[in-house]
């Protein structure tokens, strides 16, 4: 999907503490392992737990020099569905952009709610994470959904990265739970 401008630009909407920043780092680090040039940076405002926040990621075959925030995202990922009512998550999206939302609703409903006519995908990342990880940690399963619908990196390379990053921090069992959650979101996103 990087054909047109040679770069994929991602914007992630979440709330402080939901792991939007970690998600953007995880995806670009996995992409970097595949030889890509990357950037990941949050929009730093007053940092408060629970407050709406935005983080950006760029993945490219060529060197990235700009430090402009992502204004015309190819992909928008919404980690917290309540943000749809508060934030214009579709700002700057074009007909070719992709919207992915963590929700237990159907994609068609989300399309209406967000007022977005383009490709929209829904995945119950919260439900999946509670079942698989035992906690509401939707950011990792959301990445499973993201790579399924966009193909920015392969499932294998994301899992490999998760193993590398998580194993020494949270141990084998929890790492496997995260991987299972990613796989389920990868399968169920629609």
């Amino acid at each position: 999907m990087a054909d047109a401008k040679g770069i994929v630009e991602i914007r992630i909407h979440g709330r402080g503490g939901q792991g939007a920043k970690s998600a953007s780092q995880l995806i670009v680090e996995a992409a970097m392992d595949q030889g890509k040039q990357v950037q990941a940076f949050p929009e730093y405002g007053p940092e408060r737990s629970g407050a709406p926040m935005v983080t950006y990621a760029r993945i490219s075959d060529k060197r990235i020099t700009t430090y402009e925030p992502v204004l015309r995202p190819d992909i928008v990922m919404v980690i917290d569905p309540t943000l749809l009512e508060q934030v214009d998550v579709t700002n700057g999206m074009t007909g070719k952009s992709i919207l992915i939302v963590n929700t237990n609703k159907k994609a068609a409903e989300i399309r209406n709610e967000a007022g977005f006519a383009g490709k929209t995908y829904a995945v119950d990342a919260t439900g999946i994470s509670i079942r698989k990880i035992g906690r509401n940690l939707p950011n990792t399963p959301m990445l499973g959904a993201l790579i399924k619908v966009t193909g920015v990196i392969s499932l294998e390379s994301l899992i490999e990265k998760v193993e590398k990053m998580f194993l020494h921090k949270i141990g084998k069992e929890k790492t496997q739970a995260n991987i299972d959650a990613i796989k389920e979101a990868y399968e169920k996103v629609a």
Binding site: Q25, E29, V38, Q39, A40, F41, Y44, Y67
Partner: peptide, 9 residues
């Protein structure tokens, strides 16, 4: 922040 907190290659 712009550079100090941006993950890059």
């Amino acid at each position: 922040f712009i550079t100090s907190h941006c993950v890059q290659n």
